[in-house]
Design a protein around this nucleic acid. Sequence first.
DNA 1: ATAAATCTTACAAATTTCTTAATATACTAA
DNA 2: TTAGTATATTAAGAAATTTGTAAGATTTAT
Lengths: 233, 233
Amino acid sequence: MEGANILVVDDDKEIANALDKLLTMEGFKVMKAFNGLEALDALVQHDIQLILLDVMMPKLDGLSTTLKIREEKNIPIIIISAKSEDSDKILGLSMGADDYITKPFNPDELVARVKSQLRRYITLGNIGNVTNDSQIVVGGLNLNKESKQLFVYGNPIRLTPTEYKILDFLMTNAGMVFSSEQIYEKVWKEPAYSVENTVMVHIRRIREKIEITPKEPKYLKVVWGIGYKIEKL
Amino acid sequence: MEGANILVVDDDKEIANALDKLLTMEGFKVMKAFNGLEALDALVQHDIQLILLDVMMPKLDGLSTTLKIREEKNIPIIIISAKSEDSDKILGLSMGADDYITKPFNPDELVARVKSQLRRYITLGNIGNVTNDSQIVVGGLNLNKESKQLFVYGNPIRLTPTEYKILDFLMTNAGMVFSSEQIYEKVWKEPAYSVENTVMVHIRRIREKIEITPKEPKYLKVVWGIGYKIEKL
DNA sequence: ATAAATCTTACAAATTTCTTAATATACTAA
DNA sequence: TTAGTATATTAAGAAATTTGTAAGATTTAT
């Protein structure tokens, strides 16, 4: 955690400098940006592990910046703001921020919250360039495209290569429904001449692994909200 | 995220019930406990994804409970407390809590913070029982024991079962050096009768995968600081 | 009740992983 | 340097896993 790169974004240079000093003393490496655009730029240029983001800034404000960042990256964002009204906090958090601190803040509390966020981020093994699209979450399923690893409510499930490819396809197109031919052509990348039930069997095995309960909604046509259908469409 | 199990811990039953109602309305499943001991019990009994924890409670207070939980689990902990003094917040956060909310709280902000924590936790693919020692980091190697996934400088490497077991053993005992017999007995859990070079071959493949450079430090005796030695010890 | 769609099961083919063994290279000590 | 031992490499067959096929069972819709 020592040595983590923190980006401080605030148009008020005094505050930015104060934060810089504070965090540097704690052993972090600090970079500064003075508006949202600069922040976005810094993010692509450098390997940053946490962002402290002011709300009111010229060019691109903190909330919009948060939205932009979340399109790309998943790093912890702490919003710092003079607005202490609850509605602002809620707005900030719902836009993807991880914490919201109001000015004036207690320096020690800020440091504590920074460390808390970093601990979570780092503990979960995600320092680095984890972009948002490196994994797909649908319901209780979480497919990590990097490691080709599936989690079902947190429990790791070992997928065979084809099983992975099928789930990947279905999850990236969650909500849509496909015929087995469509799945076959997408996954095997070759025309499905005969209507074998190869895809079906794979689906069956996937269901078994992720424990689609075979009781209540018998005769399922989907895999947990992920489209799948055998008959022609 | 809908349907996540939340444990509410507060000895004040009115507050506990209010939180229950609030969170249930948001679509969460809520369980209640009325002191720290009950909370710890609930955690082993049920699959809980987030804890809301009061500080002042009989039997085992919130801070001590936080410490206890962190010995075992890594789930998000939000402390709710009447004490709004900064020192308390800092204490709570440094003990491993993920957020700290003071009473009286705005219900919407609380919900927003709960969702924020869950989003982070779930996004990172870790709903469930992620214990703190779920991964080992040695040098550029990062072995996730939960997902049995190896990362070499962030790049995921697919390990076969035996390769995983060997690396797991070597990395959990990083720094120590073992004979191939020792490794064999630990990993295969059966006595190494003959001195085959099975282990050696596996080590070879692991090295190949993690790209131990075969040039410079030729005739290696270690795998990146991880002990391994063939000759008898 | 019948037909179509979906599911289940079992087995054989294909592929991957593991073990063995034979051989090669590097180190160590006399 | 040379013999002896430790470590590496490679190849090939055995074992285990993954994949594809097909035949039959169940569910749904008509």
